[in-house]
Design a protein around this nucleic acid. Structure first.
Lengths: 227, 227
DNA sequence: ATTCCAAATATTTTCGAAAATATTTATTGC
DNA sequence: GCAATAAATATTTTCGAAAATATTTGGAAT
């Protein structure tokens, strides 16, 4: 793994987690000290993150952690619903046994992690398995562009979800677990209408929850507090 | 404008135009000579283009112009139809007078260029105005993510269209002109069903035309020949 | 006190060379 | 001849410093 790739992973992690809060200037000299490498790999990582809209860039004036906004969250959630509903319908139409098996296995791994408390309760493992489950539902859609946009939107909304996850209660976890189970069931039964309805409800519920949390404070305060 | 930005523009132009054909290795030393600059700005540009899927990158093994494939073209066109149809409906619902005026003006500028022959017939001006017209239809949708994906997909399909444009006849241009006119008319009349139907037909026609052209030759041959 | 300007400082951008890695060529042993 | 290995070459990646640009500081004039 090159230094540039390490820098990308580390910066992405720290931004999504909120250790580098929205709006914070990302100066090369600071980052060079923080991550112990030269400017070149850092610039490369920052440019990648800029393309993903996780950092802003202004010519000759450096990089910053991209701001959060409720409007952007709503937009991302709405577009996600459209794109993922189409993708889920296509997957249900085209998916084979391997696809179905992948969903079962991803759901199982996710539920193991949702149930965990104490030292095994690792939010990053949980987040990775949550992502893997949602991706598993869509992989059979046979559209690389759709999957790419899914990944972009997932990353964009992840930043908003992390503070909530860090503060989430155990009972809320069980709710989400039930929703994932029902979504997987409808999908495996090839009931596209039901599955897309559940998917949309799942996202709208999450979005309204996030809006409530972010509504009272400015997003950057919330995210900063999570770090 | 920084050197990195110039490198980005120049490389993008040369890739889309096909002067740098699909699959061609993009070696730093070659590019350094071609564009007369050091490695740093070139790497930056290549990374940006990699994020846009216009170049491929393999760790420690350099960059190449991304290949073309008919499958990818079909995927891009299908996703475009979905995303742009939704965006057009939203624009029709939300658009104000400025939006409508923007469509009229973009269509006028485009038609001026479609009609031109001889020294004024500049394919890049035509392409820019074609882009501007299609974007004008969607700008009122109030969804930054949708517009970003529109731009990504437009760039992806542009590479396939350029060889055809370079070889296109004048009569084919008049067909397309009529389609654009009808599309603008339905949109300005706020007839969402008709407008999206026309949009879909427009793209499917273009796609099948491109498939015919690319079907006989390998895509890289076609694009290479266009340069 | 405030505005303007210049000097000083900080930061980004670019270069040129060194280090790390990949690829090709040459050589040896079979 | 052919495979395996080593040397030579080519290429990417990274660094450290120089150049270019932005920002802050300090002081002079009004």
């Amino acid at each position: 793994m090159t230094l540039a790739e390490k820098a990308y992973d580390a910066l992405r992690h720290d931004i999504i987690r909120g250790e580098l809060p929205p709006g914070r200037p990302l100066r090369l000299s600071d980052l060079s000290e923080r991550y112990d490498m030269g400017f070149s790999p850092l610039r490369e990582a920052l440019n990648r993150l800029h393309a993903e809209r996780l950092v802003t860039a202004e010519s000759l004036r450096g990089f910053r952690v991209a701001p959060l906004s409720i409007d952007e969250l709503h937009d991302a959630v709405n577009v996600r619903i459209k794109i993922e509903s189409d993708a889920l319908r296509a997957s249900i139409r085209l998916g084979d046994d391997d696809w179905a098996a992948g969903i079962v296995s991803a759901l199982y791994a996710l539920n193991l992690q949702v149930g965990r408390t104490g030292p095994d309760a690792d939010i990053w493992t949980l987040e990775a398995r949550h992502y893997a489950f949602h991706r598993a539902l869509l992989t059979a859609c046979n559209s690389p562009w759709t999957l790419e946009f899914f990944e972009r939107l997932y990353a964009a909304t992840e930043r908003y979800r992390i503070p909530v996850l860090l503060a989430s209660t155990h009972s809320a976890g069980r709710d989400v677990q039930a929703e994932h189970g029902a979504l997987a069931e409808a999908t495996l039964a090839r009931d596209a209408d039901k599955a897309t309805a559940l998917l949309e409800a799942h996202y709208r519920k999450t979005a309204s929850h996030l809006t409530t949390v972010f509504g009272t404070k400015r997003p950057d305060e919330v995210t900063a507090a999570a770090g």
